[in-house]
Deep mutational scan, measured.
Amino acid sequence: TFTSYQLEELEKVFQKTHYPDVYAREQLAMRTDLTEARVQVWFQNRRA
């Protein structure tokens, strides 16, 4: 599960791009204290 802060950050990036590159995902992962893999999976699920 994600915190409301994490979801907010993820959604913010999703609004800009549905396909963030690895750099964007790593920045987001650091900001949200998630792994890059978790961020990647979240985007895959969000796009589905």
Rank of each mutant, 00 (worst) to 15 (best):
E11R: 02
R31D: 05
N45F: 12
R25Y: 08
E26V: 14
D33E: 13
E11A: 02
V22I: 14
K16Q: 12
T1S: 12
H18R: 15
F2L: 13
A48G: 13
E8I: 09
L34P: 12
E36W: 07
F2P: 03
P20V: 03
F14H: 01
S4L: 11
A29W: 05
L10K: 14
K12H: 11
R46S: 03
Q27I: 11
Y23T: 09
P20M: 05
Q27H: 09
Y23G: 08
K12F: 04
Y19E: 05
F14K: 00
F2R: 01
S4E: 13
Y23M: 13
F14G: 00
Q6K: 01
Y23I: 14
E9S: 05
Q15V: 07
F14V: 01
R31T: 10
M30T: 06
E36P: 11
P20L: 04
Q6I: 04
E26A: 11
A48N: 13
S4D: 14
K16Y: 11
A29V: 10
T32A: 08
D33C: 11
R31Q: 10
F43L: 04
T35K: 04
S4W: 12
T1P: 14
S4K: 13
E26I: 14
R31S: 07
K12S: 09
K16N: 08
V22A: 14
V41E: 15
T32I: 15
L34F: 01
A29G: 07
A37Q: 14
Q6T: 02
D33I: 15
A24T: 15
Q6W: 02
R25E: 03
R47W: 04
D33W: 07
A29P: 01
M30E: 11
K12P: 01
Q27T: 09
R46T: 03
L10H: 01
H18M: 13
T17Q: 10
V39G: 00
E9Q: 10
A37L: 09
L10N: 00
V41T: 12
M30W: 08
N45M: 13
K16E: 14
L7T: 08
R25A: 06
Q27C: 07
E36F: 09
R25K: 04
V39Q: 01
T32V: 14
H18L: 06
Q15H: 07
R47D: 03
R47S: 04
A24N: 04
Y5T: 07
F43W: 01
E36H: 08
Y23E: 10
V22F: 13
F14R: 01
Q40I: 07
A24V: 15
F2C: 04
R46C: 00
T32Y: 05
A37D: 13
N45E: 14
D21C: 06
K16W: 11
R25M: 15
T35W: 03
R46W: 03
T1H: 14
F14C: 01
M30I: 13
Q44G: 04
R38S: 13
R46P: 01
T32H: 03
E8K: 08
L10P: 00
L10Y: 01
Q40W: 07
E9G: 02
M30H: 11
V13F: 10
L34G: 01
W42G: 00
L34V: 04
E8C: 15
L28Q: 01
V13D: 02
H18T: 08
L7C: 05
K16T: 13
Q6E: 04
A48E: 15
K16V: 14
P20S: 01
A48K: 13
S4I: 14
